[in-house]
């Protein structure tokens, strides 16, 4: 387990606890009480740290190397029913964008999401979760296929942005994202979107137009990453913490400005410390929201989705 700066008090207590237990095993001293005290303190410290996170700390958590990624969720939620589908039928198969069919209970879903890697090799293989146009086109192909067969779509968002590369521009990164956004506004099956980590800009929204948009407690969603915002507005990366504050990118803020519909709470200590319960919370949220959407007619579904996005924004006059 890796620890972020502000998590170090937890590491200290956890180390103490391990030592305490070890002493108990090795000697005949009764350490039960000491261990209990440390455990109590650990729980209190965790609660204290994770309750008062700054926006920047949440951004750090959203990128935590031990945090589960898209395929971890799908594999945990669908088990061996998950069937991954590949390719945009045009250029290639984008490894940063994955998709496929899987079951939760008796219901099939089309899962789509950006995928990050866990070590240097797989991070490169997944292009750090930054999809190219073919990734967005693959996503759209799968959504259209789901629409054809009446299968609901679940998108899992975790991306630092769409890939800003030369070939990406040649193949129309902007157009690919734009097309997805437009088609998603009128897709005739329910779309449930979950932001599980980083939700950066058009790269996120390219698979993020949903009837219901959910956000994990320690994820972020905005028009730009705090680092890039800082480098544009302050002309240096040094102000990323201030930028994170200014962008109002946390789940609570997104909820306030009505950009998302629901926050999924993470187990105390964050998703990276308790994968199992995070998977359960996400699965339950998907099922509960699908239950709300499944009886709507296609017309009602599409018109209320359009209505929802038409209302977004604040202005006067």
């Amino acid at each position: 387990m890796e620890y972020l700066d502000f998590e170090l008090p937890i590491k200290e207590l956890e180390d103490q606890l391990t030592k305490c237990v070890a002493i108990g095993h090795e000697s005949e001293i009764d350490v039960t009480e000491t261990c209990q005290q440390i455990e109590k303190k650990l729980a209190a410290t965790k609660k204290d740290i994770y309750k008062n996170l700054t926006p920047w700390q949440r951004v750090q958590l959203s990128r935590h190397p031990n945090r589960p990624y898209t395929l971890d969720y799908i594999n945990a939620i669908c088990g061996d029913t998950f069937l991954e589908l590949h390719g945009d039928r045009n250029v290639k198969d984008d490894k940063a964008m994955i998709g496929g069919l899987g079951k939760i209970g008796d219901q099939s879903y089309m899962f789509i999401g950006q995928q990050k890697g866990k070590n240097t090799k797989t991070r490169q293989y997944r292009n750090f979760g930054m999809a190219n146009p073919e990734g967005y086109r693959k996503a759209l192909r799968l959504m259209k296929s789901a629409e054809k067969f009446g299968i609901p779509v679940v998108t899992l968002i975790d991306t630092p942005g769409a890939y800003p590369g030369l070939e990406a521009e040649e193949r129309g990164q902007g157009e690919a994202i734009a097309r997805n956004i437009l088609e998603m506004t009128r897709l005739k099956v329910p779309i449930i979107t979950v932001i599980i980590g980083e939700g950066a800009s058009g790269g996120a929204l390219g698979i993020g137009v949903g009837d219901t948009v959910l956000m994990l407690e320690n994820s972020w969603y905005s028009v730009i990453s705090p680092e890039n915002c800082s480098s544009i507005l302050w002309r240096s990366w040094e102000h990323k913490e201030k930028a994170a504050e200014a962008l109002k990118l946390t789940a609570t803020d997104a909820m306030k400005i009505k950009v998302i519909d629901e926050i999924i709470n993470e187990p105390v200590g964050g998703a990276h410390r308790d994968h199992e319960n995070t998977f359960i919370a996400v699965r339950d949220a998907i099922v509960a929201n699908y239950d709300k959407l499944k009886n709507l007619s296609q017309e009602d579904l599409v018109s209320s989705r359009m209505e929802k996005y038409s209302k977004m924004g604040e202005f006067k006059g």
Binding site: A178, I181, T185, K248, L249, V259, R305, Y309, S310, G313
Partner: peptide, 14 residues
């Protein structure tokens, strides 16, 4: 306007 400006992409496309 951060996330609100991002949502204008969806609004106009709809």
């Amino acid at each position: 306007e951060a996330a609100l400006s991002l949502m204008q992409l969806a609004k106009t496309s709809a």
